[in-house]
Nucleic acid binder design. Structure first.
Length: 1125
RNA sequence: GCCGCGGUGGUGAAAUUGGCAAACACGCAGGUCUCAAAAACCUGUGAGCCUCAUAAGCUCUUGUGGGUUCAACUCCCACCCGCGGCACCA
């Protein structure tokens, strides 16, 4: 017997596949007369093969590329890649020309930090990592299109990353601004909002804070009735403390419970600080609405869509203007955004953020020096605080009165204007109208600084009393009171009524707020693409920039930026654009852009210079500041004066936001070059190729990129689309599975997205600190990639992840060994029966003709024909049915990414196959013994008779096999033909089983498939194309890979057994099962007959005895339920 | 607090349209083979009860409590727990 040598097999096939370019799809549209069209190698040229799937429609199967930052890939990565590859292989077998590219996201902080850690220059480290990662990625046996790989640090790639930056700049979607930004003191760089995580930390409270909390507890427990002074509170506290015997307990309790959340760096978990720096931003907020609305139309995991909705955070509300009371100037007003204008009659104050622009005026006009000093002190204190400190203070409110009042025009009341750092400038308008009666946060502030509380809503509890406790603050539901024209209305109705009223009076304007902020691009780091911008002092002093150039006005004149220029794309973010000094839709000159010029497209890439001292310095200075004159000094593209390059590099997420666009256009006869666009300009992608392959059909990746990568990619795609860089209009909806284009008119880059789950190890999360990171290498070495793939996919649904345990993988190896044996184990019965000898000679006469009889008889003329134990000429009917069942279940499992069920189906099938074979063997043994003289005994043997009956009517899939007896697993009814048939599954069907296995265990499936094919070809049976040698397992020449074969089909009819099991219930409880003939169900009175049979059933009778059957439920072919009383 | 996903044997899990809960595995137990072990193969394996025992049978069981239905892991209502996202968001 041949041993299953996984190492040899896997190495061999990986080489063969590469040589045959099996996984290189036909990237370009086929050209007439072209001999060497990519991906056509495996098919004999000029001879179209109906078995060839290489002409299928394009299918772009994308997996998130890895960042090669650490020691290598672990089994978690392996899990994800395999999951994606299984899908790709399945789609290939479904007839698509599948493109499954791979690359490395090697630029960026991940890789740089790792390089710093191991003390290696990032450029050198990248080479090492690249080698290691590609080796690992090769070892897992995925069907990658290796010729199309890319690395983000390759100048040929980042040339185009920079190109994209330039395009966004020219479209007004990139801008530079001083802004408070998240600063990681450890990574010494700024972070996008998305890169700051909220982390809960345990914090032991200081005594002072404990007292604050205790005060609150006293209030909550009803200790105080009315708003009181701090002195009162203290007095109260003392007396209670003195009388309380449980004081100590309470203290520790408070200490234990205290938890805080801090913003930390996504990579190193260092608490983030806030700094003000001049930075480049991408105007993603301009796309907030489209990014939000399109979510409803794309086929993505709900989880990911929800995360994006949360992140975009659109809320409807109204901006209300409050006039400053003691100012005659009409432009002196405060704008407050609120979602709850219904409570406006309950407003008792206004609070503004310490960064609010109005404060400049307030300080200028403030009369009282003492108050001015107070304000300045407070501002100094709170502006010094980091966001982290502001947040850590939690619900503890502080504030200072400005001395100014605003007018609430709905009731002409004066609202004192306060400053507090709980109000954030970045949220809404940076000013809040305080309704302490119906907002818990406002209530806390009112209590802290002793402002009045007014009730305007009566909640469902009916409480109409004065609001003195936070538990009385009604936020959600109720009826309006003390609110003039709103009285008696439910709050929802009142919101609308008040909005209508305010808009009519022109005191307010309906609008939306968004949580989404513009995308911060600048990084003061080394390992990234230099931002391709040039700053010219000369131009700056004259107020010149690219936006004043001829090119800019040309673009403005015949703008392609349709969507950006159209009114309908404006939203409340227009407000923010205005604040920045320019609007993109009319390309008004932006003041902050003075002196800035993009590097000309033909001068790209701006190569990252080699800098010895690449480590981040902090203080907002980039390592490239040390790059030397050759890099830093450059001629101004505008005036020709000496100018300076930007030294920041761009965010890693920009590298990965467009890589899927690049993949198809790499390689082939184009090499790594771009292509001429419609206007003769070079583009990062070949328009024809892009039309053919994009958008991505299936994207699989981690849920951790729900907002970062996936949102940025969508934004970039939309922006480029709006700029007119993709033209799908004339193309190819036809390439999609159902001949439909995406519902969105190609506005989205990823038609389908699925998030894979995570792999844990023995119940614990894998992490370097725990030292339980599992690398695939050792398992591939020991068990092979096929076993590891199978094991990982069998753990559970792909979206769910699973727990990696060593015992489980050994079990999977056993399974594959079993399968191996079934395809290689020779039959122990070498003697031919008389019957077979006769047929043999007949076959020899027929020779190689295409007689259909050949299939049934099988030519045994070649002495090398391996006679296998488990594979023969015919498939027994019961196995045929099981095969159909398994195909159905496996197909279903594939479609829903529940690979575990697909594998289980194949397992069941092979179990059945072996079991059936064992039963046949029993018969054969009997025959061997009784050979010749006791034939009649054999013929009378029950199972032999049954099986021959079955064989006669069986023909191909969907054949009307019959077992002639109730099918129960233990009876030997499924025994195949006697000794003339050495096996119970036909060669065709054995091939079908391999096909089901092929996506999971691609190497073994290929090996066994080729063995099976060579066997067939030496037998001279049908299915041979071209000449095949018995050496074909050594070479793919002239062979067709199993991976381009059609996925098996199943026939509904073939699933039906002769006998059907009907469950008999009494009052919903199973009491018996009865077997009836399938045919019986088709008869007119089948119901009556089956019900009668059920009633007579021995096991059912006692349950019906003496009871009246009130109702009988009949689910045809499945179940009977007697309802008795 | 809001949004999303989930909760089924000792473990990973399965259950298609509301129709036999626990398929397929892992683990465990027993057996065959063996001087022995490993491997391989076979058998058993949700819990409880009845029974001398066997055969068979009965009851219970899908986070909790209700409901709809002849019938609920599946649908509805309320709640609990876990994971993930957002959050002094106005």
């Amino acid at each position: 017997m041949i041993v299953y040598d996984h190492k040899k097999i896997e190495r061999r096939w990986r080489e063969q596949w590469a040589r045959a370019r099996l996984y290189q799809p036909r990237i370009a549209t086929p050209r007439v007369g072209s001999a060497a069209v990519s991906g056509e190698i495996a098919t004999p040229r000029g001879k179209p093969s109906n078995n060839s799937l290489r002409r299928g429609k394009p299918y772009y199967n994308l997996m998130m590329f890895p960042y090669p930052s650490a020691e290598g890939l672990h089994v978690g990565n392996m899990y994800a890649f395999t999951g994606s590859d299984v899908w790709g292989r399945y789609m290939r077998m479904r007839g698509f020309d599948v493109f499954e590219p791979i690359g490395l996201d090697g630029f960026g902080i991940h890789s740089e930090n790792y390089a710093i850690k191991v003390g290696q220059h990032p450029a050198l480290q990248a080479k090492k990592s690249q080698e290691n990662f590609y080796r690992q990625l090769g070892a897992i046996g995925n069907g990658f299109a290796w010729e199309n790989r890319l690395e983000t640090y390759n100048p040929e790639y980042y040339r185009w990353t920079q190109w994209i930056f330039v395009q966004l700049f020219k479209a007004g979607l990139a801008y530079r601004q001083e802004a408070p930004v998240n600063w990681c003191p450890s990574c010494k760089t700024v972070l996008a909002d998305e890169q700051v995580l909220q982390k809960e930390v345990q914090k032991v409270q200081k005594v002072q804070e404990v007292q604050e909390v205790r005060k609150e507890i006293l209030r909550l427990s009803g200790g105080s009735r009315t708003t009181r002074s701090a002195q009162d509170d203290n007095a109260d506290l003392k007396s209670v403390s003195a009388s309380s015997s449980e004081e100590g307990k309470e203290d520790t309790n408070v200490q234990r419970m205290q938890k805080e959340t801090v913003g930390v760096c996504e990579r190193c978990e260092t608490p983030v600080e806030i700094r003000k720096l001049k930075q480049w931003f991408f105007r993603i907020t301009q796309y907030a609405d489209r990014l939000l609305e399109n979510l409803a139309k794309i086929d993505w995991d709900e989880k990911v869509k929800a995360a994006q909705r949360n992140w975009i955070g659109k809320k409807a509300g109204i901006v209300i203007k409050y006039q400053i009371a003691n100012s005659k100037n009409e432009s002196d007003y405060i704008e407050c955004f609120t979602t709850r204008p219904d409570t406006n009659f309950g407003a008792t104050f206004i609070v503004i953020a310490p960064e609010h622009p109005l404060l400049q005026k307030i300080l200028r006009y403030a009369q009282d020096d003492k108050q001015k000093k107070q304000i300045q002190d407070y501002l100094a204190k709170s502006l010094k605080k980091t966001a982290q400190e502001r947040q850590q203070e939690g619900t503890k409110k502080t504030g200072v009165f400005t001395g100014f009042y605003a007018v609430n025009q709905v009731n002409n009341e004066s609202l004192p204007i306060w400053i507090s750092d709980f109000v954030l400038m970045g949220v809404g308008t940076g000013a809040v109208v305080g309704v302490p009666g119906h907002d818990k946060r406002d209530f806390e502030f009112a209590q802290a600084v002793r402002l009045p509380v007014k009730r305007v809503v009566v909640g469902p509890d009916g409480d109409r009393s004065e609001i003195t406790k936070i538990s009385q603050v009604q936020e959600e539901a109720g009826t309006m009171v003390n609110s003039g024209f709103l009285d008696g209305m439910e709050i929802q109705k009142a919101i609308t009524a008040m909005m209508d009223y305010l808009e009519k009076k022109r005191w307010g304007e309906r609008t939306f707020t968004y949580h989404l902020r513009d995308w911060l691009i600048s990084r003061q780091r080394y390992w990234g693409p230099p931002i391709p911008m040039i700053y010219c002092k000369e131009c700056a002093s004259k107020g010149l920039s690219w936006f004043t150039s001829d090119e800019a006005s040309q673009i403005q004149a015949n703008s392609k930026h349709q969507a950006l220029n159209s009114k309908q794309n404006l939203n409340s973010n227009a407000q923010k654009s205005k604040d920045l000094g320019f609007r993109i839709w009319d390309l008004e000159f932006p003041a902050s852009m003075a002196g800035w010029w993009p590097v000309a497209e033909e001068d790209l890439p701006v190569k990252l210079p080699y800098v010895e001292d690449y480590q981040p310095r902090g203080e907002g200075k980039a390592p490239l500041e040390k790059a030397g004159k050759e890099f830093l000094e450059v001629k101004c593209p505008g005036c020709g004066a000496r100018a300076r390059r930007e030294t920041d590099v761009s965010d890693t997420f920009l590298d990965s936001a467009w890589y899927f666009l690049r993949y198809p256009s790499i390689g082939g006869d184009k090499g790594n070059k771009g292509d001429k666009g419609d206007e003769g300009k070079e583009l990062p992608w070949q328009p024809e190729v892009t039309r053919r392959w994009l958008p991505v059909d299936m994207y699989i990746g981690g849920a951790e990129h729900s907002v970062l990568h996936l949102l940025y990619s969508r934004f970039l795609w939309m922006a480029l689309y709006d700029m007119g860089y993709f033209d799908f209009s004339a193309s190819n909806g036809a390439r999609l599975p159902d001949g439909q284009g995406p519902a969105l008119g190609w506005e989205e880059p990823f038609t389908k997205f699925r998030a894979h789950g995570l792999i844990i190890k023995d119940g614990a999360k894998m992490s370097k600190s725990k030292g339980n990171v599992v690398t695939p290498d050792e398992y591939i070495e020991k068990f092979g990639a096929d076993t590891l793939r199978m094991y990982l996919m069998f753990l559970g649904p792909l979206r769910q992840g699973g727990d990696f345990r060593d015992t489980g993988i050994a079990g999977m190896y056993r399974f594959l060994e079993k399968v191996w044996r079934m395809y290689t184990e020779p039959s122990e019965y070498s003697e031919d029966s008389e019957d077979l000898k006769v047929r043999r000679s007949e076959d020899q006469k027929v020779g190689g003709s295409d007689s259909p009889n050949l299939r049934l008889s099988g030519s045994l003329s070649n002495p090398s024909f391996p006679r296998l134990k488990y594979i023969g000429i015919k498939t027994t009917p019961e196995l045929k049915r099981k095969l159909n069942w398994a195909v159905k279940r496996a197909t279903d499992g594939m479609e829903h990414l529940k690979y575990n069920t697909a594998i289980a189906a194949v397992m069941e099938l092979t179990n059945k196959w072996r079991q059936t074979r064992n039963e046949v063997q029993e018969v054969q043994k009997v025959q061997e013994v009784q050979k010749g003289n006791q034939i009649s005994d054999i013929i009378n043997h029950k199972s032999y008779r049954q099986s021959t009956e079955g064989m006669e009517s069986m023909e191909g899939i969907g054949g009307k096999g019959r077992t002639g007896s109730p099918s129960s697993a233990s009876s030997p009814s499924s025994a195949g033909r006697s000794s003339s048939d050495h096996g119970v599954l036909s060669y065709e069907d054995a091939g079908r089983v391999l096909k089901l296995l092929a996506p999971f265990a691609p190497h073994m499936a290929e090996e066994l498939w080729q063995r099976l094919q060579s066997t067939k070809s030496t037998r001279g049976t049908r299915g041979t194309r071209g000449t095949r040698s018995t050496k074909s397992t050594e070479s793919m020449e002239g062979m067709e890979s199993i991976h381009t074969q059609a996925w098996p089909r199943y026939e509904e009819d073939a699933l039906k057994s002769e006998m059907v099991t009907v469950v008999v219930q009494v009052n919903g409880r199973v009491r018996a099962t009865i077997e009836i003939k399938n045919e019986k169900l088709k008869m007119k009175n089948s119901r009556e007959e089956v019900v009668e049979e059920a009633k007579r059933n021995q096991k059912v009778v006692p349950w019906l005895e003496g009871k009246e059957i009130r109702k009988t439920i009949w689910v045809p072919g499945k179940l009977i339920n007697f309802v008795v009383g």
